[in-house]
Design a protein around this nucleic acid. Structure first.
Lengths: 346, 346
DNA sequence: CTGAAAGCGCTTACAG
DNA sequence: CTGAAAGCGCTTACAG
């Protein structure tokens, strides 16, 4: 880091590599070489160059530096929604990972719309990003053709397609969801409501499938109910409210993403129901507030940090070896059964 | 938006303006002119150029396009923490605002560390951003000298310094906090705990000042207690736990940022206290989960969208008229007194 | 060990 | 109406 008061000679204008070269009495090519630690340069020149860099407060323009290469040292990250803390946390982890790796991270959101995801992807490709990390809006990159066409190293995250030419990282959605159902069944529940956002998302489909498989095992498939809750908190509130209005509630709700958990609790609260006496609730995704409710909400914990680390490592690996065939990694979730779960009402 | 399958001639390589020029039988300069809608060009040439652009799936490289100007068409946004939904929401609003304005948004976080804020600012300046929107880590931009030196249009947000050469947008922290105290006093509270993150942050200081002013008016200054809760949820949990351990709690807690609200509720929950019977709680910042707790938590609502819109308008204005003297805008908050507030225990 | 020249993908005067 | 040339801030062969 440089000091707070860069001793620039020309306030308002940044020094260029030519200014440094002039001051150090060498050519711009030599400055460039020294700055990137390449080749053999006379010690005297090196010293003069470093002095000039300090004197002028010179810092290279990373965008111009990459112009001659076909790819910029930028990684693009596309998430569905900044307001969801799960993705917020993901962004924070990637930002930390990008530091020191020599890549800059540019993060954009698709707002859960495929057209926007496509437009954002194209915009990042316009920047000649070296790589991309994408949480596809509905399980398949919206600008898949362009990504493949331009051969940009890409890792898909969270909502990953079954078949794809890209690297993938996800959690063990099927098994984690099955485990939740098994726990509920073990406590005596039969009538269980599942709350996915939509069945177009591959991760949601996997969660429903896992839950259903466990239900089949327990022979309670016919008692399982699926409520589509839509992309965000607003839609989930609406869906839950309608369902609660209908009456004859199940004895347990397993919400498959955090906005639905929020919506379910809101209805529980509004109608004066008491967890877990009247209703058990388990959410997929653990968020900080889930431990300040009364009782705390049981949750499937996604290891965000591990997901980000694995994905970043995969991306770096692919940038190093573009030819390798795509790999898939599945990270295991943990189930924390908190106070919101008990047996069904007597 | 272009179709999913760009009909590129050279897969893997993007077409350049030279490719377009060659195909359309004109010079690159003419293509450039047409693409930016400048100057007079023969209708025939225009048609051939558009045809070539489509044929090759050409899209300009916005970074290269800006190289000749001293500033890139990029706006940098620095927030303290992506994991805080208040800032997540802010980022989402700015992203939407940037679209269609011809600027691309590059968002980074300071992780509540001034050194990181300084480094992130320098990095964005390296990119020659046209403008910056900064939520200063502790009330004053960490790389202030560089921002001023390079004359980059800058708007400060949320935690704004008292005196500064930059445009500022904040909420009416003093008055909003005073209003909370007045409401609590009106309900009979005297012993009130304030929970700021730190007194180094100008917005926190203003909130404390506003609360204190109202307390003075009500002659209860000596009953006010201030608990520093630190930068994030973890530190706030720790601070709250220690304070609750001490015993002799106040009758009301006014947390001045959402992590402290979370921490306060966690202690309430852990110790089996009942709101508002044993304790009233009001938080500064409204977050979605605050309405799914029992009872819902009273909150000072910051109008994130209005804040973002005002700040963006200011930035655009300053880019248009760099010479004008800095302006300050204060946006009003709304107080929603929900079930977590009542009179003190009898 | 060093520098002149060409190039990255565009735009900007300028000349015609 | 159009194009050749120079330039933005760097890097990359290449020649010496």
């Amino acid at each position: 880091m440089q000091s707070n008061e860069p001793p620039r000679k020309t306030p308002g204008e940044r020094a260029t590599i030519h200014d440094v070269a002039r001051l150090a009495n060498v050519s711009p090519a030599t400055v460039s070489k020294v700055l990137r630690g390449l080749g053999a340069v006379k010690a005297e020149s090196v010293a003069r160059i470093h002095a000039a860099v300090r004197e002028l407060g010179f810092r290279v323009d990373p965008l111009a530096a990459n112009l001659r290469r076909s790819r910029r040292s930028i990684v693009g990250l596309i998430v569905p929604d900044f307001r969801n803390p799960f993705f917020g946390s993901m962004v924070a982890h990637f930002e930390r990972l990008a530091e020191g790796s020599g890549y800059r991270l540019v993060t954009v959101s698709s707002a859960e719309k495929t057209e926007r995801e496509a437009a954002q992807t194209e915009a990042l490709l316009d920047w000649r990003v070296a790589g991309m990390i994408v949480v596809p809006t509905d399980g398949r990159p919206a600008a898949e053709a362009s990504l493949l066409d331009q051969k940009v190293a890409t890792v898909l995250l969270d909502r990953v397609p079954d078949e794809t030419g890209f690297d993938r990282v996800s959690v063990n959605n099927v098994e984690a969801s099955a485990a939740v159902i098994r726990e509920l069944v073990a406590r005596g529940h039969r009538r269980i409501l599942l709350g996915p956002s939509s069945l177009d998302l591959t991760n949601m489909r996997d969660r429903v499938d896992g839950a259903m498989a466990a239900a089949r095992q327990a022979d309670i498939v016919e008692d399982i109910e699926v409520l589509l809750c839509g992309p965000d908190v607003a839609s989930a509130m609406h869906a839950m409210a309608s369902r609660f209005d209908e009456g004859r509630l199940p004895t347990a709700i397993f919400t498959l993403y955090s906005p639905a958990t929020l919506a379910a609790l809101r209805e529980v609260e509004r109608r004066g129901l008491v967890m877990p006496r009247d209703l058990s609730v388990v959410g997929f995704d653990d968020i900080e507030w889930m431990q300040v409710t009364h009782p705390p909400i049981a949750a499937v914990i996604q290891p965000v940090q591990a997901i980000a680390e694995v994905a970043w490592a995969q991306l770096m690996q692919r940038l190093a070896e573009p030819g390798e065939s795509p790999r898939t990694v599945e990270v295991a979730c943990e189930l924390d059964l908190r106070g919101s779960v008990a047996g069904p009402p007597a």
